[in-house]
């Protein structure tokens, strides 16, 4: 069993990302979409929280949502993979279940 967690809220405004990390078991994945992509940036108050969780959880971020918000891929935390819409679909297909942290 593996679960895909999607997070669409900014981690500096809401606790959705923190909750997703706390509840994601080893081997599961977190995909940041929409305002959730701010959680992928280096140098924010929440960057360490993400870095520390990376041993157990795979992190992905939606490229089109990064571009919309003017976030250059060079400023993404190392180890987070950028995906496009077909990558999003592939992630959903690869995992048994998907949970949205709204």
């Amino acid at each position: 069993m593996s679960q895909l967690h999607t997070v669409n809220k900014s981690p500096l405004d809401r606790h959705a990302l923190a909750s997703a990390i706390r509840h994601a078991v080893k081997g599961s994945a977190i995909l940041m979409i929409e305002d959730g992509v701010y959680g992928a940036m280096q140098g924010t108050q929440k960057s360490d929280m993400v870095s520390h969780a990376m041993d157990d959880i795979s992190f992905y971020v939606m490229g089109p949502d990064l571009e919309a918000r003017g976030i250059n891929e060079a400023r993404i935390i190392d180890g987070i993979k950028v995906v496009d819409y077909s990558g999003f679909v592939a992630l959903v297909a690869e995992h048994d279940t998907t949970q949205s942290w709204l």
Partner: peptide
């Protein structure tokens, strides 16, 4: 707060 994100450079919404 998150309002500062409104003013960031380089926003490109074509793909969304």
């Amino acid at each position: 707060d998150d309002g500062v994100y409104q003013l960031t450079k380089g926003q490109d919404t074509k793909a969304v």
